[in-house]
Amino acid sequence: MIMDFIDGPFWYFSLIVFFSGIIWNMGSIVFALSKVDLSVSRGSAVSGAIKTIFTRFAADKGMAPHIRLQIIAGYMFHLGLFALLFFAAPHILFLEEHFLGFGWTPMPHWAFIIASEFAFLGLLILWLHRILNPVSRLISTADDHIASILTFVVMLTGCLALLESFTALRLLHRFSVELFLIYFPFSRLMHAFTFIPSRAFTGAWFGRRGISS
């Protein structure tokens, strides 16, 4: 019964929450931009926006030496997670069967393992740094911790189900993914989508004023 619930209604419910939440969030960002800037422009807003989307991948030069651990661990985690999310064979198969109808070449198994190891190590370092560094601890809210732990649980249940043969483990992974999807639009996990408009907005704002950002 629980099995049917996780595979059926709860899955659709989480998808609805996830997508409607994202559309709602992104929509409100887009509508917030509709104010017309009447000032005389001193530079291109568009080029500033596009440039900033990419320049912000590198940390601020003044900050970088102080947050090297977070940069390295951050990239390890995000790249690892990206790779195993979109290039792991079982994920591609799932997307192909349930959503897209087409698939792409998955990573070999060993690359999948290495990617997930990078992701695990990065996430562990980031979360522990959040707890152990007094400044990070102070500026972290419950949301940050819940998001970190939820992401970790999703990854952990995925790794426990690697043999791909026990239904209970697959359901556990799926259930944690569903919780993650439901939590996603209401939390800072939204940064997976909002980082682009937020960078673009800053870039456009500065670009229009002819300031490098």
Binding site: P108, H109, W110, I113, I114, L162, L163, S165
Partner: peptide
């Protein structure tokens, strides 16, 4: 047989 670094199957 699943290549290097493979998880053993059943």
């Amino acid at each position: 047989d699943d290549g290097a670094f493979a998880s053993r199957g059943k």
